[in-house]
Design a protein around this nucleic acid. Structure first.
Lengths: 195, 195
DNA sequence: GTCTATAGAAAGATAGAC
DNA sequence: GTCTATCTTTCTATAGAC
């Protein structure tokens, strides 16, 4: 009964982040004004500063939250014991996770240069952490003799780039289901590294 | 003897484009002001409008010129007659061309959303034209029985994403030469589509 | 062809009323 | 917690002198 008006910080806070995510993804961080974000949320521009100290921190928080979620989600994913099952798990996980949050992914790749150098360092560290998960799998496959990879660092970058590329063209209503896309990409990834 | 001062449009014009290319690539189109570009060139902000009608056209011209150059360069590349030789030519060409002009590539991928919808359409058409070159090679390999690709559209996107990814991590002074990187990527591309 | 000067709009952020 | 009002800066683009 109480609090019909006022005290909306538990609601407005997330709304600000959602609106910023959408707008940053669509038009780019530098091209979006605080007034536009406020307009989406339905508050005045000044009110945004109740939820973030400044625009830069708003961007950083979105990216940080995304990276934490990515690493946590992978940690909770069933991987199997063989190199092949782990690589398949990674390929499918990466495609699925990315397709579920295209806006956050877009920002994570496009807005790195708009981070302050301090914030950039923190995000880069998390991104590296994620890449290392894949590299470990490739190394594992090398030791078992399942994979043949001339350079695991390069193969890691190549596979991630290939998988991430799905987001640039995949459409929900398109010709292929997400499941089918996973299938085809996993097949290409497997062949590109299998002995 | 004449024209020590004045009449520099044949020099200043290119300088404007070079400066814009550098700055757009480094900080993003929306984050760069006409004053910054003018500062790099060594003229006043107002003088830029002698060389471009507005900021949007400056971006479009950079991207258009880049795409024309890309298509023309591929047309003049030796390709061989077999699917394998053509795919190798494409893989090596793509990596080499991209590494030779990282700034233009960066802009071509990052600033699409900052084009007016009319300009976007023109650039997209050229990009599609380039992708079709690769798809034709994959189709060719399918008919000869050299390649086994479940879906040529997807394989096209996957291969291009993989090759384009090189630009995100390659450094001139790094561990691997461009030639060696070409070698490794061509090997992965080949294995991912070969029968 | 470049300059200064400036118009006119919009940006990020803050102050203080309610 | 949100509002209006506003400070200060910066932006794109133009006008007119030289």
């Amino acid at each position: 009964m109480a609090r019909k008006r006022g005290s909306h910080s538990d609601i407005t806070g997330p709304k600000v982040r959602t609106a910023a995510l959408r707008l940053f993804a669509r038009h780019g961080f530098a091209a979006v004004s605080m007034r536009q974000i406020a307009g989406e949320v339905g508050v005045q521009a000044g009110a945004l500063y109740l939820y973030t100290p400044d625009k830069q921190t708003l961007l950083f928080d979105l990216m940080k939250e995304h990276m934490d979620e990515l690493l946590s989600a992978w940690d909770h994913t069933e991987k199997g014991r063989t190199p092949f099952s782990q690589l398949e798990a990674f390929s499918r996980f990466h495609i699925r996770f990315n397709l579920e949050r295209p806006e956050a992914i877009f920002i994570a790749y496009m807005e790195l240069r708009n981070l302050s150098s301090e914030n950039f360092g923190k995000i880069e560290k998390l991104r590296k952490e994620y890449e290392d998960k894949l590299e470990e799998i490739l190394c594992f496959g090398q030791t078992t003799g399942d994979f043949l990879v001339p350079d695991t660092k390069l193969a890691t970058m190549a596979v991630i780039a290939m998988l991430t590329g799905v987001n640039t063209w995949f459409r929900q209503e398109g010709r292929l289901s997400r499941e089918r896309v996973e299938e085809i990409y996993w097949d290409m990834v497997r062949r590109s590294v299998a002995k």
